[in-house]
Simulated scan of single mutants.
Amino acid sequence: MPSAVFRPTTTFSATNSQAIEAGFMPARRSAVITAVKELSEGIIRLTFADAYIAEHAQPAQFVNLYLPDPLHTAPRPFGVSEVNGEEVSLIFAVVGVGTERFAQLQPGDTVDVLGPLGRPFNLEQSGHYVLVGGGLGVPPLIKAAQDLSRRADVQCTAVFGYRDDHFADEYVKRYADFAFSIDESEGNVITLLDRIEARHAGQRSAQPKILVCGPLGMMKAVAAWTSRRNLSCQLSMEQRMGCGYGTCVVCTVDTKYGRKKVCSDGPVFNAQDMGWNE
């Protein structure tokens, strides 16, 4: 009996432009760094040019950045903070080797990117949005304020809490109708929410929609605050990730409906999905 003959099949690798035309997100690709700025000690705002991410990124979505190092294959996920033309800005803290390397990039350098990834905030409704951010949870809320600022049917209030330096106020004030911030020497975001509520006591207005991103304890506190007032609350969860698109199952969290992956099922979840408002 003759042995089987194996013939190689023809393969096709689409270019980024062909992938976009076919309705698919383009693959990992190289982007040019256009600006790097230190906002505060260890807090970096990095901007790169990528037309696809700039056009398609929605608030709370993130992008993967890759180090040009075979010993560090896992990407680092960063929430999109702002989009201007074809430029995409990220804000992150230098906390390890990867973020330190990204912080050392200079305009004209290149970095491999993939995205946008994840499930964004739902901003379909009109009305009043209150964006509550803590620390490095503020970037996706700046993007939310930027997108909401283009609409005539919404009002936007930013409520940010910091450890000390108010590094993101300059950016969110460009877009929000009202912006309030506080640091640990004065209180926290619940302090601000209580003050805002007291200021508007007795006024008849539609219930605000709350968007939250920040440390876990802060988000649980805000979810409880909204629950007592029967307000809708969307949470952009922060979790350590491996791949960023649902393959490695590193970023799972417990919800009322079982374990979910933050990178693909989220990062946005409703507070009731997490069971935090009960």
Rank of each mutant, 00 (worst) to 15 (best):
N270P: 01
P139D: 06
D112Q: 12
Q104P: 04
Y129G: 02
L117S: 04
Y129T: 03
A4G: 10
G275L: 02
F92L: 06
Y171V: 05
T11C: 01
R229C: 04
G275S: 04
Q125A: 13
G133N: 02
A179D: 04
G258H: 02
Y66V: 05
Q272P: 01
F269G: 07
A198C: 00
A176D: 00
H166F: 14
H166R: 15
V5S: 10
V132G: 00
L65M: 14
F269T: 08
T99I: 03
V138H: 15
S30I: 04
Q61H: 13
L39H: 10
I196Y: 07
Q104T: 13
P26Y: 04
R28K: 15
R150Q: 12
P107A: 14
I53F: 07
A54I: 13
D164K: 13
L105V: 11
E100D: 10
P75L: 12
E197M: 09
T34K: 07
W225H: 01
F62E: 00
Q155T: 13
C213E: 07
N122T: 09
C251G: 10
F102E: 10
D109V: 05
T99A: 01
R204P: 10
V5A: 06
P267A: 10
F269E: 07
T10K: 06
T9V: 11
V5F: 07
E86I: 03
N277C: 12
P26I: 03
V94T: 12
I33Q: 02
P139F: 04
E41V: 14
I182N: 11
P215Y: 05
F92R: 07
F48V: 11
T9Q: 08
V159T: 02
Y66E: 05
R199G: 09
E82S: 13
I44C: 02
T15I: 05
R174F: 04
P75V: 13
L105I: 11
F121N: 05
V36K: 09
P75A: 13
P267T: 08
A168W: 08
V222N: 00
G266N: 12
Q146R: 04
D265I: 00
L131R: 03
M241F: 15
L192F: 02
T255W: 01
T11P: 02
L216I: 14
E124W: 04
F24E: 00
L67Q: 15
H72P: 06
K220E: 08
L90K: 00
C251P: 10
A206V: 14
G98I: 13
S236Q: 11
I33F: 05
F121M: 04
D164Q: 09
E197W: 10
L105Y: 07
A223I: 00
Q234E: 01
F121L: 06
V95L: 03
G96R: 15
G161K: 13
V250Y: 09
A31V: 09
A93N: 14
L192E: 00
P2K: 10
I44F: 03
V253W: 01
A35L: 05
I196T: 03
K256H: 07
P70Q: 08
L148M: 02
E197T: 14
V130H: 00
G275T: 04
A74M: 11
T157N: 07
G266W: 05
C248G: 07
G187D: 09
